[in-house]
């Protein structure tokens, strides 16, 4: 309880550190905040060319929205993923790169990784805003679903924050963590239905049947990946314009709460030794 109080007391610092990230990042660039769109746009163009044009991947039409545009379908999953992977890769080094500060001033250290989450969330919000406008232009009736989208965004942010907190601490003791993470994130992305529809996995899983005679299917293992559920929910809301399936929603809530709680506990346990370990 005391810890929660301390967190609340440092919220202004959190805001200021977040602003430092957001304002400092695109200082002295001509395009400023627009740069944050460049990365997802480039990824979108490449993936659309390779997977839609060359590999001919055809995701199901939006139901009931009737949308059939690969690029937008892709972005509904890609933008949450990019947010998640950015939070992790920036969060992991948030303590090590602020070593000077940690060794000179006392403040609630948890704000360092959390400010990275908040700064990324800000850019993500901007990207999602652009996506929503694009979806609306091509005829998706997305507006009523926006409040729920915001809720799921918050859940994903909590999930990402929890993982980032744990990774940041781990990186202080094992500097390999951040290099490991780069590889893990790459694999993780391809294990998440971002550039292909999950229906392809379902079909293959059905063909293979139970693994080694057990009733466990490939899809069961595949669904252990929390990002599968997040991507599914985002697509159902934004692309299909319908209520997300209860199972996926529940999975998102549980993963978010579980990850954030565990991350905070790990962080709190190691917080006091940080100045020495760095």
């Amino acid at each position: 309880m005391n810890y929660i109080k301390e967190l609340l007391a440092s919220r202004e610092l959190l805001v200021n550190l977040t602003l430092r990230e957001v304002k400092g990042k695109y200082r002295r660039t001509i395009f400023g905040q627009l740069w944050s769109l460049a990365n997802p746009l480039a990824a979108m163009l490449v993936y659309t060319f390779v997977f839609s044009f060359i590999f001919q991947i055809r995701p199901d039409k939006g139901d009931p929205s009737g949308l059939n545009i690969f690029a937008l379908w892709l972005l509904c999953g890609l933008l949450p993923w990019l947010f998640f992977s950015n939070v992790l890769s920036l969060g992991v080094s948030s303590l090590v790169s602020n070593a000077a500060l940690i060794q000179k001033v006392y403040f609630s250290r948890v704000v360092l990784p959390l400010s990275q989450v908040a700064a990324r969330a800000f850019t993500w919000l901007f990207e999602m805003g652009v996506l929503v406008v694009a979806l609306a232009i091509v005829g998706s009736f997305v507006w009523p679903w926006l409040p729920l989208v915001l809720v799921v965004m918050l859940l994903l942010a909590l999930f990402a924050a929890g993982v980032a907190l744990a990774l940041a601490v781990m990186n202080v003791y094992f500097r390999d963590t951040e290099h490991f993470l780069t590889i893990i994130l790459q694999i993780w992305m391809y294990l998440t239905p971002i550039i292909y529809p999950i229906s392809l996995v379902e079909t293959q899983s059905h063909n293979v049947g139970g693994i080694f005679g057990t009733p466990i299917t490939v899809l069961d293992l595949y669904s252990l990946n929390p990002m599968v559920h997040f991507v599914q929910v985002f697509r159902e809301l934004l692309y299909d314009n319908r209520w997300p399936s209860g199972d996926a929603m529940l999975a998102c809530v549980l993963w978010a709460i579980g990850s954030f709680t565990l991350g905070l506990i790990i962080f709190r346990r190691n917080e006091k030794g940080l100045a020495e370990a760095l």
């Binding site: 610092l13 430092r20 403040f107």
Partner: peptide, 29 residues
């Protein structure tokens, strides 16, 4: 505590912005 002055200044930000940033690091509202 004042162990090192200017720790936590962000180089690209102005003096004004840094006063607010550093002030909040030191625990001021």
């Amino acid at each position: 505590a004042l162990l090192e002055v200017g720790s936590g200044f962000h180089h690209e930000l102005s003096g004004r912005e840094n006063i607010y940033l550093n002030g909040s690091i030191l625990g001021m509202s």
